[in-house]
Structure formats: C-alpha cells, structure tokens
Amino acid sequence: MTTNLAAQINGVLAALILLTAFGLLAQRRIYGMLHLFALQGLFLSVSTAIVGYTAGLHHLYVSAVLTLILKVFVLPYILYALVHKLHIRKEVEDLVNIPTTMLIGIALVIFSYHLTAPVRELSTLITKSTLAVALSTVMLGFLVMITRKKAVTQIIGFLALENGLFFAATSATYGMPLVVELGVALDILIAAFIFGLFFFQIRTTFDSLDLKEMEKLKEED
C-alpha cells in the first residue's frame, strides 16, 4: 500500500466520520443514533489502523483494536441495553429544528477548517488534512449535546465528541502515548457506567429522562 493510497483511504474515512457526525445531528431515532455511533467508531478504528500501518507505529494498532472493541461493541451495547431497559422508544426530541442544526453544523465545519489552517501549514504528516475533520467532529458532538433534550442522546453526543478528540490526536501527532489512550478508554467506559447509573437515578427522581426536569433543581427565588 503506497502512502498516497493510504492518504486517500484516510481521506475517505475522514469524510465518512464527518458524515456520521452529521448523521448523529440529523437522526430522529435513538437506535439509529446508536448505529451511527457504532459506525463512526468503526471508521475511526480502521483509520487508526491505516495510520499505524503507514507510519509504522505499532502502538496505534492497540488503539485501533481498543477503539473497535470499546466504541463499536461495548459502548453501543451498554447504551442499547440502557435504552431497552428504560423503555425509551420515542423519537429524539430536539430543541432546534434539524435543517437549522445542519446549517449551524456546516458553519462549524468551516470554522474549524479556518482554525486548523495554521497547523495544516506546519505539519508534514499524511494525516494533516484530517485535523479539520477531527475538530469538526468535536464541535458537532458538542452541538448534539446542546440541541438535544434527552439524556441518552446527550451521552451519545459526548461520546462522539470523544471520538473527535481521539481522531484529532491521531491526525495531529499520530496518536497519544499508549498509556494515555488506555487511561482515556477506561475513563470512557467508567463514564458510560456512571451515566447509566445517573439515568436510573434521574428517572426514579423525576419519572422522566427529559433534561427539562433538571431545571427544577435550581434555587427558588
């Protein structure tokens, strides 16, 4: 596999990751969001493996496998089980309508392209052009968290954001040291469990997972 072809494949994967990030914004069904999230993890994992192969950095393989297990199987499964147990069937509710969210998303992508321009000029890595996509994924993950009402969709947004960070690390510096990555992976896993616990708590307290209920927690004046 030539470097050029690897760069092209990596570009395609980056585009697909961007697409799934937009997909998360546009998706109305919660199971659909989970599938998209798993797909994003898959693309991320393949991309990491390819970068590892071309750069000859074998610790990236570990990251790739870790991503594959955690983000394609374990986390979606946990969330799937949560959604199933909590009987969340309703369509995703959003605060801002979908076309507007999309336009904001496009604006964010252009903004992150602008932000990463200096890095692109300096970097010599084959992955330098994907940095803008990585940053956009982070921002789009944030946007998912901001525009959605339900707690489960928020955690998906959070995890997508983390995907973006991971991707950014790979594209900017060929990944973080393995120790850091392992730590982050563990954190994510634990975060998912804690979120799950929180959901049960929120629901038993408010009888709903709508985050609007949390507004009641503020001090009365």
């Binding site: 570009g11 961007l18 076309p99 999309m102 392209y113 996509v133």
Partner: peptide
C-alpha cells in the same frame, strides 16, 4: 421532502467541504 432534499444539500456540502479539506 424538505428534509429529504435538505439531506441532499448536506451531502453535496460535505462533498464540497471534503474536497477542500481532504483532497
């Protein structure tokens, strides 16, 4: 259909963006 064609617009825009960002 608004959303259907909005999706088409989104795909085309991502295509345009990925040309500038990735190619």
């Amino acid at each position: 259909v608004t959303e259907f064609l909005g999706m088409a617009f989104l795909f085309a825009t991502i295509g345009m963006l990925s040309y500038f960002m990735l190619e």
